[in-house]
Design a protein around this nucleic acid. Structure first.
Lengths: 121, 121
DNA sequence: GCCATATTTCTACAAATACAGAAATACAGG
DNA sequence: CCTGTATTTCTGTATTTGTAGAAATATGGC
């Protein structure tokens, strides 16, 4: 019989916390919109100035949002001279989608999870 | 050619806001755990006392979290005498999953979205 | 080294959120 | 109607979050 060790539980709750933080990072219209724009521009991504042009929010606010998205691993950054280019982190998004799918559907036993595994890049 | 009217844009941003609120509602470990428990118990759901027994948080705090989840449409409530029974709102979760899938994958053109439509109940 | 541009950090503040003890409400049963 | 149990609302506080102006930093070109 499979025993659930204290470490298992700790890991599981740490994982839960991580996903909660990711959901939280997507929990405002501004940041969700940023992600949308980056996904639309994927895999090239966008530099901050391009995002700013679309979003009509002050640079400092935008920077703050980008920092949060970066901190939760939802976007990646690379420098191009003076510019910083942000791209959506498809791996993280795939993980999040997979988690949601597993929680929502696997436990519900409506669709087998295999179908999701190939999702995203 | 399809023109994008002002109303289209307003609707789209209202929708975005709604999904952002949903993500926000799942943006803490406590509420994500509540959803997990409800999904595990789906379709029966759980009464508040059962949730309280699992979660080890004060009733008032739990009630507050449940209220937020209810407000964002992620759970449904029904009264059973003295008890209130909460269930996961699979329709809302399916919509959220579909949104995330569409944003993450359709734009990315990796997997066709048809595969998701039958997901959840 | 200096200048111009891109982006972030600093700082501050208002608003939202998490939390929880205590009181209030809702219901079932006697 | 009174009692006990279930759950929420009330209340207050501490923390986090969103926002943004101003200053600072980073980079490339002259």
């Amino acid at each position: 019989m499979a025993t659930t060790t204290k470490r298992d539980t700790a890991e599981r709750s740490a994982e839960l916390e991580r996903y909660a933080d990711m959901f939280s990072a997507m929990g405002t219209a501004a940041r969700l919109r940023i992600l949308q724009l980056l996904l639309t521009a994927h895999p090239d991504g966008l530099v901050v100035g391009e995002l700013a042009a679309e979003l009509d929010i002050p640079n400092s606010t935008l920077s703050h949002h980008l920092d949060k998205l970066k901190h939760e691993g939802l976007v990646l950054v690379s420098r191009e001279g003076t510019f910083l280019r942000y791209t959506a982190n498809t791996e993280a998004l795939q993980a999040l989608l997979g988690f949601l799918y597993a929680e929502c559907c696997t436990r519900n036993k409506v669709v087998e999870p295999k179908r999701m595994l190939a999702c995203c890049k």
